[in-house]
Design a protein around this nucleic acid. Structure first.
Lengths: 214, 214
DNA sequence: GCAGCCATGTTCAATGTTGAACACTGTCGA
DNA sequence: TCGACAGTGTTCAACATTGAACATGGCTGC
């Protein structure tokens, strides 16, 4: 399922802003310029939310907000466990040919504790090195592969090396306490025009409506 | 459409081996270890071929081969033009977040002439540099982005730089005549256990069956 | 007070993707 | 000669994705 990163993204973004509706998520994701990468057409968001709700990873609340009906989502304990699993997999598994899961994971890093982040990054580094060793050990002899394909292996090696250096740096920053992670004070505040601020009001109202319904 | 690289891959592989059936393509693609990246489940291949045929990019021939019915595909002039368009786009457009189209393009490089390859790689280099400049010019000020997202930009810059060096190297090799490209003698022969060899027999038989049907 | 327009929130038909499962053929040993 | 099994070639229902289009509300200017 290529949909893994969409699941991760939706689940994580709901956790950041819950309770939220689909339109708010879309607005926020657009402001992240996520359109550039992930599959976040309106349809994907709504059907993704529906799927996650069906699986019990999200709870759907059909609220009447003023004169309007809104479908508002919150995460469930199951969904939060699922998120951690997806997040770990995305961050621990290097994949040169689809960097998206990792980038999605980085964007959602503040939802994880410092310990968890540290462990996941360490695992990524180990896997990166294991991949590099495996590639040098070349299961397939060079003669079995045409030259124009062989040359791609050099690119991969280089990319792996570049990422490794960057990753070591990132791990050092995590170790010395950079970034506001889960259970820590935020290290950063969104600018005034961020849609996240507009959401805050709705969030409060949604919370009341949900508790009123029980 | 994320299906662009599937279209490119199928169209190109058909051109390499035509006339071919879906099973042969699948076998060949598996031997390329394409499963690791592209969406090449059996279903994708057959439905992809059907779509390309419907659009006139491929011709489908329903042959009776011995006691068996086989659906065999050949490329059309329209399809070959479409391939060139897709190939150029894949190779000329750098995209850090989905390297697949480029890798697919590289794998299919022998279908293009040396001039075309040279031009496309030059265009890629120009785009790579343009992207790097755009990123340095930072439309968004650093304060508008949380630190854990900002740090990804460093990774992208590094990746871009690594690819640039590799690309300059590759261009030099193309300039000095490496790789057997379209209209040139092959510079490489597949090992004896490559499914490409098994295909050669069927190819001849398919050709006869097609010409007999007219 | 109403016409026009943007913002909000969602649906849906068309299309693509997944991978298990089907159906058939050949072959090799018991 | 039978049955097991690997190889060949394809289909299909379930599911995901696409993005245009719908429906409604509120604001703004006239």
């Amino acid at each position: 399922m290529a949909a893994t990163e969409t699941r991760l993204l939706l689940l994580g973004t709901v956790m950041l802003f819950e309770p939220v509706n689909g339109y708010q998520l879309r607005r926020e994701l657009l402001s992240w310029q996520v359109e550039d990468w992930a599959h976040v057409n309106p349809g994907s968001i709504y059907s993704g939310l529906a799927t996650l709700a069906r699986q019990g990873n999200l709870a759907r609340h059909d609220l009447v907000d003023g004169s309007r009906e809104v479908a508002v989502y919150t995460s469930t304990p199951l969904g939060r466990r699922e998120f951690e699993k997806l997040w770990r997999a995305a961050v621990e598994t290097p994949d040169i040919l689809s960097p998206l899961p990792f980038h999605t994971g980085m964007a959602l890093m503040p939802l994880m504790s410092r310990t968890a982040v540290r462990e996941a990054l360490r695992a990524r580094l180990a896997n990166l090195d294991a991949n590099a060793r495996a590639q040098l050990a070349q299961e397939r002899p060079a003669e079995a592969v045409p030259p124009h394909v062989l040359v791609l292996a050099d690119l991969w090696m280089g990319m792996g090396q570049t990422e490794r250096e960057w990753l070591v740096n990132l791990m050092a920053r995590v170790d010395r306490g950079d970034f506001g992670l889960r259970g820590e004070p935020a290290d950063w505040e969104a600018p005034a025009d961020d849609p996240g601020w507009q959401m805050a009001n709705d969030r409060q109202r949604y919370l009341e409506l949900i508790s009123r319904k029980g």
